[in-house]
Nucleic acid binder design. Structure first.
Lengths: 195, 195
DNA sequence: GCCATATGATACAACATGTCTCATTCAAGA
DNA sequence: TCTTGAATGAGACATGTTGTATCATATGGC
């Protein structure tokens, strides 16, 4: 189920952009239930028939939206710095994404993924990119002797990012940079090896 | 916004029970969008008008359902055991709840809370009971000298339960007892004081 | 400028929603 | 047991939504 290819026809590109922007506004302001063909047509100033031509059913609209909303640009931390710095930069980047529009998109996906296999697959895919980068970082730390070789890397990844997602999804509270630092210090600290 | 009081009239109790069971089935099997007056009436073998009489709008049905679904019975760990054992018992209890129906209810709430103030309040309330018990436990540990007094208790709570929620909501993967043990050892271990 | 294609406007049936009315059934007290 | 008020069932009704179809118009690529 590959994402829809970008059309070349400028007319199509225009209406498509208008509809996607409208759909995104609706999702962000009123939730997934508000993302319907009718409301997108009204918001985008486009005929309802046109919306149906682009997406035959509601599910495909949402999936398109969610996939676009999760095309995250995570900053790659500078490789020449030490492990703690790199992990901190990465986690701060996650926290920033969760604080913004990414948090809403994620919440919507979590609620839909439970009953929609496509959304579930998209969520799983999205949720492996960031953690995957973090896991790579930690494995390099183990290989480079900065990290205790006995650490359980997958568990350590979850221990580092779990609190971020918990705060955002359940408490709707931000995780600021200073708290990320304390999280990294407390979680990563005990497994560090003196260089 | 207190939860609806239990009616005394046996006829009312019966229809109410039938409708709630039907609504719960719909939520569990098809998600929040399927919880409508019409479908509850069909599922419960009850007139549509009756469903409207009990809940004037869709939101109140969902809120009722979610509040019932989150009336968690968390086992209080035996107070005479050591801190690690008590925390482990509590976290295993959380993990078990998340593995069952509670996980679906939670996912639904996370998705709805973003755009519904009532659901958000219910989620926040629910999400403070368990963590509150854990925080009490940890504070007692600090007071009793089992735990380093410099620990950040709220952050430690999030570091202990965050991974559990992350696994359930984002990866749809279970967190078994053995992994809870490793989580507790890794997260709580470095802050323990020799008795 | 021509032609294929996308869009707009509209019609339509099917279904869902919310409100209402009235007959029937039920529970509880006299 | 009888009576009465409340709850329910059945259905009518207006309104809105969904999904599909048709045809005229507008647009882009050649």
């Amino acid at each position: 189920m590959p994402p829809m290819p970008e059309p070349t026809n400028p007319q199509v590109r225009r209406t498509r952009r208008l509809m996607l922007e409208a759909a995104h506004r609706l999702l962000s302001e009123h939730g997934p239930a508000a993302v319907t063909h009718l409301r997108i047509a009204e918001e985008a100033g486009v005929s309802r028939a046109t919306v149906y031509r682009h997406w035959p059913d509601r599910g495909s609209i949402l999936l398109d939206l969610l996939r676009r909303g999760t095309e995250l640009r995570i900053a790659s931390p500078p490789p020449e710095t030490d492990l703690v710095t790199q992990v901190t930069i990465l986690l701060r980047s996650f926290a920033a994404i969760l604080s913004g529009e990414g948090g809403r998109t994620l919440a919507a996906m979590v609620g839909l993924a439970e009953w929609d296999e496509d959304v579930s697959a998209a969520l799983r895919q999205m949720a492996t990119i960031g953690p995957g980068m973090l896991a790579d970082l930690l494995r390099r730390g183990v290989a480079g002797g900065e990290l205790d070789p006995s650490v359980d890397v997958p568990l350590l990844v979850d221990r580092l990012i779990g609190p971020l997602y918990l705060r955002r999804l359940l408490y709707h509270e931000p995780f600021d940079d200073e708290e990320v630092d304390r999280l990294v210090a407390a979680t990563l600290g005990p497994s560090l090896r003196p260089t």
